[in-house]
Amino acid sequence: MRLILIVGAVLGLLSVMIGASAEHALRPRVDDEVFRYIMTAIRYHQIGALVVTAIGLALLAPLGDAVRRALAVSGWLFTLGTVLFSFSIYLSALLGMPWLTGITPVGGTTLMIAWAFLIRAGWLGYRHADAPG
Rank of each mutant, 00 (worst) to 15 (best):
T40A: 10
Y37E: 13
L57A: 10
M97I: 15
P105D: 14
R27L: 09
L14I: 08
Y90Q: 02
V51Y: 10
L95D: 06
R68S: 08
A72S: 15
V30T: 00
R43M: 12
L60P: 02
L59M: 06
I89C: 04
A66I: 11
T104R: 06
D32A: 09
A93I: 01
A41M: 15
T40M: 12
I89E: 07
L14N: 08
D65Y: 03
D65I: 04
I119M: 11
V30E: 01
T104F: 12
L57R: 00
V83L: 08
L13E: 03
I42E: 13
L95R: 02
L71P: 10
T104W: 13
T40F: 14
L57G: 04
F85C: 06
M97K: 08
G56M: 00
P98I: 13
G81E: 08
V51M: 08
I55H: 04
R69F: 12
L13H: 00
G48P: 15
G56T: 01
F78W: 15
A70W: 11
L111P: 12
G12C: 02
P98D: 14
I89W: 08
I18W: 04
E33G: 08
V30W: 00
V34W: 05
R43D: 13
A116P: 07
R69H: 13
A20Y: 08
V106D: 07
A72I: 10
V16N: 02
G102V: 13
L11A: 04
L11P: 11
A54F: 15
M112F: 14
W76C: 10
P98L: 10
A41Q: 14
A58I: 01
G56R: 03
L84Q: 09
G96P: 07
V34D: 03
W99Y: 11
D32R: 05
S92V: 01
P98M: 09
A22Q: 01
A41E: 12
G8Y: 07
M39E: 11
W76P: 06
V52N: 06
A20H: 05
D31K: 01
T53W: 11
A61K: 03
G8H: 01
T104K: 09
G12W: 07
G48Q: 14
F87D: 10
Y90F: 13
T79P: 05
A9S: 10
L111Q: 12
L111C: 09
S86K: 06
R69Y: 13
L13S: 05
L111D: 11
